[in-house]
Design a protein around this nucleic acid. Structure first.
Lengths: 216, 216
DNA sequence: AATTGTGAATTCCTTCACAGCC
DNA sequence: GGCTGTGAAGGAATTCACAATT
């Protein structure tokens, strides 16, 4: 158990391990080794052991890890034992799709508000208790609803302004889908999902078959 | 100009630089230095110069880079001078949102087909010439429409099977939104966008204020 | 004077390899 | 025998710092 700072890459892998453990638990497996885990997503087994070792000694030599125990540990480490209250800002196609996204564990994340500037959208009921709100009440609603996580699905031009408003209201974590760089704010964590970058990376691959240089 | 292999991270940054150059070109700027570019997304200026140096010598000492020239170079390197034909598989909320996503440059990416298994959805017209197709014709349509890029927005359970089908049909690049590890295939590039991982990373941050360990 | 391009230094991440334990 | 936990080695990515160039 170290006090070193833990890399983002490690945290991302913990999520992957957890997902796999959920499946193993569902399949009734009692234990799993770092090797068999590693084979599922071709990773190195030492990597898995090192990732876990940052947080404690969860395994048993000669045996492996108890699936249910490790699952609980990972849920705790990832903060998934409590429910986080989420707001979506921007009820365009993407915002609405995320509001209904089934992949977010219901237990750990609950969407409590969704906002849009368009008066035609305000008032639209999405489902039980989730209605599109006006953006003028943004700050107030965030505070009243104790929103911890904001998902930003607004146009790029206004993303930074909205970001400033929500962090000003005390939000410390933002999942940003706008294709812009948000300025760093102390104590605030931003994850940006940039779909254009992903597509352009694929485009580069198509343009440069088999590791050929693209320079000339 | 090297023959070294170029990191994914470098390619991703090229997309970021390109976006910025587009703005600068729009604002009528003629030249830009690596330093001023770096300041916009707090990066190191040497990083930018190194990234560009993999592909050629595009700058002028004492001056910087010509905005329009560098823009063209990056478009070429990223393969954005030709249009790539894209198919979306899975017309759920996310698939439909991406079909209408305005962020993909129209010039470089064109969505030519969208598929779903649900008979109730098949035949739905989304817009000019884009109608939801049945999945049985998948392989045939991919070949007929010369699809180069597939966006996978199907449920996790079927993602691998669909992946095998599209790569079998000759598709070499896949943008995967299903929360699964897709097995590596030679000559095929996969980019996975995993929304749960992103959210769980934010959750971890909330659970572990200011770099405190989460072990005990 | 300003800025690029790049070896050298540094920092960060992954993999190896094995002692220690079950 | 099998598997974890980890120090040491190796590899990759970033940053420094400066010679070269306009």
């Amino acid at each position: 158990m170290k006090t070193e700072k833990i890399s983002e890459l490690t945290i991302n892998r913990l999520s992957i391990y957890l997902r796999c453990l959920n499946e193993l638990a569902g399949a009734g497996e009692a234990t799993v080794s770092s090797r068999s885990l590693a084979e599922r997503f071709n990773l190195n087994s030492a990597q898995i052991r090192k990732d876990l070792a940052y947080f404690g000694e969860f395994g048993i030599r000669g045996v492996g890890y108890y699936v249910e125990d490790l699952r609980q540990q990972l849920m705790r480490i990832l903060g998934l034992l409590t429910t986080h209250r989420v707001a979506i800002i921007g009820a365009g196609n993407l915002g609405l799709a995320l509001a209904n996204y089934p992949g977010f564990s219901e237990k750990s994340f609950r969407i409590v508000a969704i906002f849009d500037v368009d008066p035609a959208k305000v008032g639209m009921k999405l489902r039980d208790g989730l209605t599109i709100s006006r953006t003028d009440g943004l700050r107030e609603t965030i505070e009243r609803e104790s929103v911890e996580i904001v998902i930003l699905t607004v146009p790029a031009e206004v993303a930074e302004a909205v970001f400033n408003e929500v962090t000003g209201a005390g939000v410390r974590t933002v999942l940003n889908f706008a294709p812009v760089h948000l300025p760093p704010r102390p104590g605030v964590k931003v994850k940006t999902v940039d779909l254009s970058i992903s597509l352009e990376s694929l485009s580069h691959f198509l343009a440069n078959p088999a590791g050929e240089p693209s320079g000339w």
